[in-house]
């Protein structure tokens, strides 16, 4: 019974992904169909068009196995033995350096924005007239 529910819910997610693909092809969008499906489902959940119960088991199941679905694509690396070369080393180095730069910049920026938002909230609370506490 539980397996059946998971399978049915995955079908619902599949339908959203399919609709997303149709929209992407129809309007020739750059955004992947699956992402359009994600936005559609999120909207439907927020407006209670689709109850969370209809997808939570299926979504939980897929997300717990997320890494598995990547593996057939990653195995494709076997066709790229050319990466074991000077060009390949530079290519990998570009990814490594960019990752370090990105983490450093984004972490600092995120923390900065967070503190700024908190300060503003703090200011608003201070400027509010204090209601007499009993």
């Amino acid at each position: 019974m539980k397996t059946l529910i998971v399978v049915l819910q995955i079908c619902i997610l599949y339908i959203f992904s399919y609709i997303g693909n149709v929209i992407q092809n129809f309007f020739h969008l750059v955004i992947p169909g699956s992402i359009i499906g994600l936005l559609l489902l999120f909207t439907c959940l927020c407006f209670k068009i689709i109850p969370v119960k209809w997808i939570e088991s299926g979504a939980g199941f897929l997300l717990s196995l997320l890494m598995l679905f990547f593996i057939p694509t990653t195995v494709g690396v076997m066709n790229y033995s050319s990466l074991l070369s000077f060009q390949g080393a530079l290519f990998i180095l570009a990814v490594l350096v960019s990752t370090v730069i990105s983490i450093a910049i984004t972490g600092t920026a995120g923390q900065f924005f967070e503190k700024k938002a908190q300060n503003r909230k703090g200011d608003q609370e201070c400027s509010k007239p204090h209601s007499p506490s009993v």
Binding site: I10, L13, Y14, F16, S17, Y18, G20, N21, P32, G33, S34, I35, G37, L38, L39, L41, F42, L45, V52, I55, E56, G58, A59, G60, L62, L63, L66, L68, F69, F70, I71, P72, T73
Partner: peptide, 15 residues
């Protein structure tokens, strides 16, 4: 197996 990638991305709407 790869064909489940699409629905998995859609599933990210849940969290």
């Amino acid at each position: 197996i790869s064909s489940l990638l699409g629905p998995s991305v859609v599933a990210l709407a849940y969290p």
